[in-house]
Design a protein around this nucleic acid. Structure first.
Lengths: 144, 144
DNA sequence: TTGCTCCTCACGTCACGTGAGGTGGC
DNA sequence: TTGCTCCTCACGTCACGTGAGGTGGC
């Protein structure tokens, strides 16, 4: 065990390792702390951010929600509600409504994005075909 | 025919109608003209932007590429190359390479996005379930 | 001690949003 | 003439990018 001081909390990770694992920039991860969306659980004596595996999972969730175009304010609200629900707290009627609204919006935008993705994939295929044809055209152009 | 002056060019559309059809804001459509990515084919005497059906299709393409996170500079380059290819021009080797690179990047990011979409859809289902459970919890909370 | 990693400002950028004040066209 | 749509500035915003200058830790 490399982190005996943390007891059963598991390994702690520096920001660079986290960035590699999750696929976000250092700046983005720091920014997510700044806006209170995904802060590290701790800091080293020297001030280095230290992320637990749960912190990393949270960053993954934020990243995976990005294509759905929630603002970071909405993400913070949403993740806060989810945290409180998972901690066993009883939410107010308004909070439950917000959580339901986020879930509905997420489902809607997922569906829209799925359609858009189909369109762009077909466009990408056309583009690849054109690139191939252009290459052959360029070769013919140089030969003639 | 409502636009006899345009001959066989088909109907011309004002920006508001275009925005409704494509699902982009007026500001975004104007901005796409500003950066030279999708200008209107014409203007009315009074200065109103007038879009052809082809202009509208171009805006649709730009919109559909947005999830793939190309910059607008890249989009302008890409659409310019595609235009010139479709006009029958022979591209230089460098231009052909760029077109191929865009096609490759589009395919890669499509695949990544498809994976991300799967993840977020499953997350959205979990969220919907939690929202339902939270609602029942809230009701129980008020009853007790 | 050297090197790599991390730190905090702080200004810059991209892709728009949002009025303000004014005009076009059925 | 009224109302709705459009116009051009121009400043604001969101989510970061990009150095500058300095320190931590194996």
């Amino acid at each position: 065990m490399s982190n005996s001081a943390t007891g059963t909390a598991g390994a702690l990770h520096q920001i660079g390792e986290v960035a590699d694992q999750v696929g976000l920039s250092l700046r983005t991860i720091r920014y997510y702390e700044e806006v209170g969306i995904a802060p590290p659980s701790g800091r080293s004596v020297g001030g280095f951010r230290l992320y637990t595996d749960d912190d990393i999972e949270r960053l993954r969730v934020v990243k995976s929600f990005k294509p759905l175009k929630f603002t970071l304010d909405e993400m913070r609200d949403l993740l806060g509600l989810r945290d409180r629900f998972e901690a066993g707290e009883v939410l107010t009627a308004d909070e439950v409504d917000r959580l339901g609204a986020y879930a509905g919006t997420a489902a809607d935008r997922s569906e829209q994005l799925r359609d858009q993705l189909q369109a762009v994939e077909s466009l990408a295929r056309v583009l690849a075909g054109q690139a191939g044809a252009a290459r052959r055209g360029a070769v013919r152009g140089r030969r003639s």
